[in-house]
Each structure stands twice: as C-alpha cells, then as structure tokens.
Design a protein around this nucleic acid. Structure first.
Length: 862
DNA sequence: GCAAGGTC
C-alpha cells in the first residue's frame, strides 16, 4: 500500500485536519522530537487505497544566517554584509530536530500533501519541508505527480474536504518572495545594527543599551513613538473661550447647554458673544428631535484587537498578553490566538461554544437567554483566510486559570458573547435653543435595549436623566450665561494600543510579530512603558530617530517596509525576477548604508548632547595590566571596563555584579582580577578582564572566567579549583567557589548547578589527590572547632564530596542529586588523570558515562 | 551580540 505524507504548519492543525479527514478514525503517536505528532489512517488517494500520515512542523524549519566567520563583529566590515558575506540556511530550532524528524517520517512515502498555512510564509515552509523530505521519499513512477498543495481558508469540515478534493501545487514564486524578504532583512538589519552599535558604544559610556539595533520594523515602530514625543514637545497651548449657558428646566433641575460654535480663539469676539446673550432672560426652544440610534456589537475578535484591549483595559503588555493567550490555547480554553480574521465562516458552529458558557456563574443568564431566544448573526468582518476569530472553547473560572489568564479569558469570552448579541439601542433626544442670536443644544441618550452592552458593561451608554418634555416655541428661563477660558492641551505619549493600530495600518509586522517589535524597542531602552501603558521614548530613542531624520528620513519612515513589500509582491505574483529584485533592493540599501556611514557625524552631534564619552563614565575599579593605571567600570549596558590611558575596552558578563577581587592579578597579563557574582543563585567566580576578551589558550573561548581557564598552575584556574563533572550538564565541571566561605559552594562552570557544602568550615582547598572511585578531586576541609561535624576533636578531613560518607552528609546538590554518577552506580570518569595534567578538561564526557540517566538509575537499583 | 518571520 502506498503512503501519503501530509504536513501542517503546527501540531494542533495536523490533529484537527487529520480528525476531519479520517472522520475521527486515526491512530496517533508522538514524533521523535516530542513536540510533533503523527496521525495515521487509511483512505483513498488518486483512486487507490493508501495509508495517510498526517504530521506537522513548528513554523519555519529553517532560518537564514551568515556563514559563521561573518558573524565575528570585529573581523568583518558591516558593509560586506550587503553582498560579499554568503548566507546559509540553518535549522530554525535545532532542539526540535525537524529535518531529521521529517526524514524519518517521510522515508518511503510515495506522495506528499502540503497543508501549510495559506500565506506567503506557509508557501515558503512548503519548500523547506520538500527540501528535507523529497530526497528520502520513494521516486516518482514515470512522470507521476508526487507533490501536492492543499489550499484551505478555514479549519472546517467542508473547507478541509474541498481542499483535499482539489489539490494544487505549491507556489514557488510566493516562496521566493519570502526568501528575498529574509535575505533583505538579514543583510540590511545586521549591517546597520553592527555599524551603529560599534560606532556609538565605542564612544559613549551611558547609552545603557546592550545593542543599538536597526530593523525595517522596529525602527519605524520607534519612529511612531518619537513622532508623538516631538508633537508634545513642539506643542504650543492656545487659549480659547467657550460660552456656557444654563437654563432652568423646573424648580430643582437645570440643563447645561452646548454652544453650537463650540469655541472661539479670539477673546474679544468671545466677549462680544457673551455681551449679546448674557442679558437674555429666556432661552427659546427652536426644535426638538428624537432619534433612535444603535451602538454596534463588536466584530469578532482577532489578535491585534485582543492585544489592544489587553493593553488599554487590562494593563497587559502585548508580549505578555500573547503568551497568556497561547497558554489558554494550548490548554484548550480558547481557539488559536493568532489570526487576522474578524469574520466567522458561514458554517461555523457558534452555538457550541456559547452552550459551553450556559452555566458560567458570571454570564449564565445572558447566555441562556441568547440560546433560548436565538442568537444574532455576527457582523460581517474581514476574512483573511487564516484562522477563525478568537473564540472561547471551554468554560473556565478564575480559580481554575489564575488571576491574569482569567482576566484575558473573561475578556475573550465576553467579547465572543457580545458578537452574537444584539446591538445596543438608544434614543437620542435633542433640544435646540436660541438665546439672543446664539444657538445652543442639549442632548441626552436613553437606553431602549442594552443588547451586547449587558455582557460588555464598560461599553454601556451612560445613564442620563431624560430631557423635560417641550416643543418648538417653548421657553426656559436662563439661569446663567458665562464665558469659560480654556487652553488646548498637548497630546499624551502614544499608548501601546495606539501604536498597535499604527503598525497595523502601515503594515509594520504581523499579528504574531507586532508584540515582538514593541518588546524590542523596550528592551533596547529606546522607550519605556509608563503608567497607562504609554510609551515614552528615552534620550537614546529620540536621538536615534532625530539622527535618521537628519541623515536619511526613509530609514525611519513607515514606508520603508511597505516599499520593500511592494517589490516582494512582484516576485510573489511572478511579475519580477527574484534575483533582480533582491539585487536591486540590496543595492539601494547598500548606497543608503554608505551614505549613512559617511554622514554619521550628523547623528553623533545629537548623541554628544545627551551622552557622555567613555572616558568620562564609570568608576575606577581594577588596574590595567598594560599601563597599571585604574580602569573604569561602566555599569550601564553593555557593562565593561575601560582603560582611558590605553583607550581599550574590555567587555564583562552582562548580568550580575562586578567587584574587585582582592587586588589579585592574572599571572598571564598582570590585569587585576574582578569577581563576578549573580544575585539569584549566589554563584560567583573571578575573571581576568583581558583573558575574558582575549582567550589565552587554544581550548578557551571568548567570555570565559577563571573557572573555565585551563592555566595549569594559576590558583584561580579550573585546573586548580575544579572538582569533577557536573551532575546535570554534559560539558560542565563543578568548581569550588573560593570566595563563598563560610557557606562554601561548588558551582558548575557551564550551567546553573550550585551545590552548597560545609557550612562550618573556615578553610576549603582542592587537593591534588583524586577519588579512587569517581575520580573527582578530593577536598581538604578545616572545620570550626566548635561546630565540627567530625568525630572527637577532629577538625580536618580530606575526602570526595560525592563518595566520602562524612562529606556526603554535608553536601546538598541543588538539582537532581540522583543524577550524579555516585547514584548511578559506579565510577563515571576515566582513570588516571592527575592534577596539572589536564585533569578536568571540559567538553569531554567520560567514555564510561552511561548513555542515559534512566538506564543508569536502573543499573543502580539492580 | 545583529533582522523578521514562523511556532512551543
């Protein structure tokens, strides 16, 4: 029997589609990566009985990057990134092992049907899947077609079955347009980012951003925030005047009237209007009107609207809201949360989800009434053909979900119920008045039927007292006419919700990536989120945008994205050649880049005003090994040491704190050591600023501290303080933290493992002896006399932290102690490597180490 | 260390 491999874009879709096509008659198992499942069933395909295997990828299989050597910032001129630097496709998520997984499942299959999302990205993923799978599939017999594309616009039985009945071919042009986009984004983004970062971080010490990034989405996003800032700055308040009239409706009620001219900006003219009306005793009713009006129920919910409301009404940032929605989705409470669509398909079962809510303590009454009296058809929205609007799938309570997820779920559910509710109907009563020559009106709204506002009370029409009955020609006594002096006020900073709207309008980012871009400009310290989730640009953000305006405004205008996208669409439609468009666009941006580099002084002038040069920032901390003068420690991101005499900068670890380490020096370069420590885990190790940036030995890499240093005799090195292989990670070594006494600690030099040991020792040394059974270095411990855990008057003991019965009691391994070789039954290390002969080289797991932890445990329990 | 786009 032949086999048909079918691939969807995500595991959940593979399952839904397989369920529909197999009519629920399928068998499922997890794939080798533990994330994707394979659903199998038999059916007919091209007139024959076949076995179907439906599975999925997880988004893109591949990602684009430069060849390794072009990722060395100090060795490559960013200008080379526009053309010379070759790119390669790498697996997007190596942990998922997606290529291998696809090949295992695709091996021996005869046909492939691609069920990727029906957008350009999906089309591109089709070819990523084909690249992985075609080489292992059975070859086609005599011109037989083997590759098919299913096109569907919703995950409903009819759509999916129709797609299966009318299979087409993947669209190569659409896929190519995505390839072009990837390459453009990579080359342009990285070139500008590297140049800016190196240039400005090399000059200023207080930018407080780890990266001065540029991108065709993030930069215009920042641009919107700065544009609003500029409008606030340049705002000049204007004085205006409003005529306010009050009439007596009856004994104890007066009506406030709105002036038909609204306001005037000339004081004398305002005074003239006041003079013309203030002596009038009566207000004449000129007309009355009663209009029935409706407030429309909301459109079905899509992602950006959800994010807007989450930010503006729930105070949840887009990134956080998206993560929360995703959890609600994977737990089955809501439908897929990434969708542009605000329209339910005609055959969508609206009553099913609604029935789920019929017993909910908060809205059972509303839902039951809707079910009994009939629901209203949702308004016609936009159908992007991706996924149905966000819909609650299962009833839930706050206790079940927890406070934050509940608030989002509650909103989604109320919104859904509102979309099948009726519009809110209200009566708008207006009375038009004349006082002297001037006209005024008074308007009042009264609700006829609340409709959807019952379930979305924050949308209700506010309660107002109805107007007194009257008709044309009636008069009311004027209680007061006065002139109010007011001032126009500046706009406020952009709210996240407004920013999302702007991004959507200008096509910056997608529903899934909008939160990422907003998050980016926050993380880079270009904007900060203020109260009310308003985005206030920092000096850095402002200077960057003003700099782009000065040099090349196109770099920050929202059109930068849409202009490129226009070109890409030509590729997608087959109207332009991929190579030509790519080459041309790269050429344009290469020119822009060179012009930008040549004109960078213009932006620098702005930087100078806001930021301090490297030499003027930071506090003296440790001595330089070259000139022996103090170097300054710059704490602001990226934290580093700067020697102003040598004009050299040495980067430091980015998290945690840095202190001088007892004025001890590195034996290799005479630099004073500093001590890095992280608050959360209480981990610390010394490092040499020079070695950290210029690894002294071949087997070392950039960014290594003394706890990874292979110096054979230095007292701070891995060779001298290392104890044995880490209990959790593959390549790490547990190293004694010489500063941790009196609560001594041993920490892995690669992962987060920290072991506490010997609370009451005043001295701990790593001995040159090794343990006979596990080959770890022995520890030589001097305990406090009064608190010694040893028998009798003993205070000193030498032993293995893992195997010695005395020490074992005193050592507490933070993580999974049962994984240690000691508990796995027997020695886990090679014999015969003594100190000074590279006893503990990192990165070489022992030959005798059991393959997996379960078999090790099993061995132990036998 | 960089972009933006998928998705977990």
């Amino acid at each position: 029997m032949k086999t048909v491999l079918m691939v969807a874009e995500k595991p959940s879709l593979a399952q839904s589609i397989a369920k529909i096509l197999s009519r629920g008659n399928m068998s499922s198992h997890k794939g080798l990566n533990g994330t994707c499942s394979v659903h199998e069933y038999t059916g007919t395909f091209a007139g024959q009985q076949v076995r179907f295997k439906m599975t999925s990828v997880c988004g893109h299989v591949m990602t684009l990057d430069f060849l390794g050597k072009y990722n060395k910032w100090d060795k490559v001129d960013p200008a080379e990134l526009f053309s010379q630097a070759p790119t390669e496709k790498k697996e997007a998520n190596p942990k998922l092992n997606m290529v291998k997984f696809l090949q295992v499942e695709g091996k021996g299959c005869d046909y492939i049907v691609l069920w990727l999302d029906c957008d350009k990205e999906g089309e591109n993923i089709c070819f990523e899947v084909l690249d992985a799978v075609l080489p292992v599939m059975n070859p086609a017999h005599g011109g037989d077609k083997t590759v098919f594309r299913a096109r569907f616009s919703s995950i409903t039985d009819t759509d999916i079955c129709n797609a299966m009945a009318r299979l087409g071919e993947p669209d190569h042009n659409e896929a190519l347009s995505v390839d072009a986009r990837q390459e453009l984004d990579l080359r342009i983004g990285c070139a500008f980012t590297r140049f800016q970062t190196k240039y400005f971080q090399g000059k200023y010490g207080d930018l407080d951003s780890s990266l001065i990034s540029f991108g065709p989405c993030q930069t215009p996003t920042l641009g919107f925030c700065v544009e609003r800032h500029d409008r606030i700055q340049s705002f000049k308040p204007e004085t205006y005047w409003v005529l306010q009239a009050k009439v007596n409706a009856d004994k104890d009620r007066s009506l406030l009237l709105d002036w038909d001219r609204v306001r005037v900006f000339d004081r004398e003219i305002a005074q003239m209007f006041l003079n013309m009306t203030k002596l009038e005793k009566e207000a004449q009713v000129e007309a009355t009107s009663k209009k029935e009006k409706a407030k429309q129920r909301p459109l079905a919910l899509n992602t950006v609207e959800m994010l807007r409301v989450a930010s503006s009404s729930l105070g949840m940032g887009p990134q956080h809201a998206m993560q929360t929605a995703e959890r609600l989705y994977t737990q089955g409470y809501i439908s897929y949360p990434r969708t542009e669509t605000t329209h339910y398909p005609e055959n969508f079962d609206l009553k099913g989800p609604l029935r789920q809510q019929a017993n909910h303590p908060y809205w059972a009454d509303t839902v039951k009434r809707l079910l009994a009296e009939g629901i209203n058809r949702p308004r016609k929205g936009h159908d992007a053909g991706d996924h149905p609007p966000i819909t609650p799938m299962r009833s839930a309570t706050e206790a079940e979900l927890g406070s934050e997820p509940w608030r989002l779920y509650e909103y989604i559910t109320r919104h859904f119920i509102a979309t099948v509710s009726y519009d809110c109907k209200y009566l708008q009563n207006t009375i038009s008045f004349r006082i002297g020559p001037e006209h005024f009106t008074c308007t009042v709204k009264t609700v006829i039927s609340p409709g959807f506002t019952e379930i979305m009370p924050w949308q209700s029409v506010p309660l107002e007292e109805s107007l007194p009955p009257c008709q044309r020609g009636d008069t009311f006594p004027v209680a007061e006419v006065k002139l109010l002096e007011k001032q126009t006020s500046p706009p406020d900073y952009l709210t996240e919700a407004e920013l999302i709207t702007l991004m959507e309008k200008h096509g910056i980012g997608t529903d899934a990536s909008i939160p990422v871009h907003i998050n980016n400009i926050c993380q880079r310290n270009y904007v900060v989120v203020e109260s009310g989730r308003r985005l206030k640009p920092t000096n850095l953000g402002i200077v960057l945008v003003h700099g782009y305006y000065k040099i090349d405004a196109e770099l920050v205008l929202p059109t930068i994205r849409s202009a490129v996208e226009k070109q890409l669409n030509l590729i997608a439609q087959g109207k332009a050649d991929y190579r030509q468009v790519l080459g041309h666009t790269l050429d344009v941006f290469k020119r822009k880049f060179h012009y930008f580099v040549d004109s960078i002084a213009g932006m620098d002038e702005l930087m100078e005003v806001s930021f301090s040069p490297l030499a003027a920032t930071g506090k003296p901390l440790s001595r330089c090994g070259k000139c022996h003068r103090f170097m300054k420690y710059i704490q602001a991101k990226p934290s580093r040491l700067h020697c102003s005499h040598c004009d050299e900068t040495y980067t430091l670890p980015q998290n945690g704190t840095i202190k001088l380490y007892k004025e001890l020096r590195c034996p290799l370069d005479d630099f004073e050591l500093v001590l890095w420590s992280s608050g959360s885990r209480g981990k610390s190790y010394p490092l040499c600023p020079y070695c950290y940036n210029h690894p002294p030995f071949r087997d070392m890499k950039k960014g290594m501290g003394c706890n990874e240093c292979t110096h054979p005799t230095c007292q701070h090195s891995l060779s001298m303080l290392g104890i044995g292989q880490c209990v959790e990670c593959e390549n790490g070594v547990l190293v004694l933290d010489p500063t941790s006494g009196p609560k001594w600690k041993v920490a892995c030099n690669k992962c987060n493992v920290v072991a506490h040991c010997f609370e009451n020792a005043h001295r701990v040394r790593v001995s040159s002896e090794t343990c006979g059974s596990c080959e770890a270095a022995l520890l030589d411990v001097d305990f406090n006399k009064a608190k010694s855990p040893l028998l009798g008057d003993e205070t000193q003991h030498v032993g293995c932290v893992f195997c010695d019965p005395v020490f074992q009691e005193l050592v507490e391994l933070r993580h999974a102690a049962s994984c240690h070789p000691m508990h796995r039954g027997g020695p886990g290390r090679r014999q015969g490597r003594g100190r000074g002969r590279g006893r503990r080289p990192a990165g070489k797991p022992s030959a005798r180490r059991p393959k997996d932890k379960m078999s090790a445990l099993a061995a132990y329990f036998v």
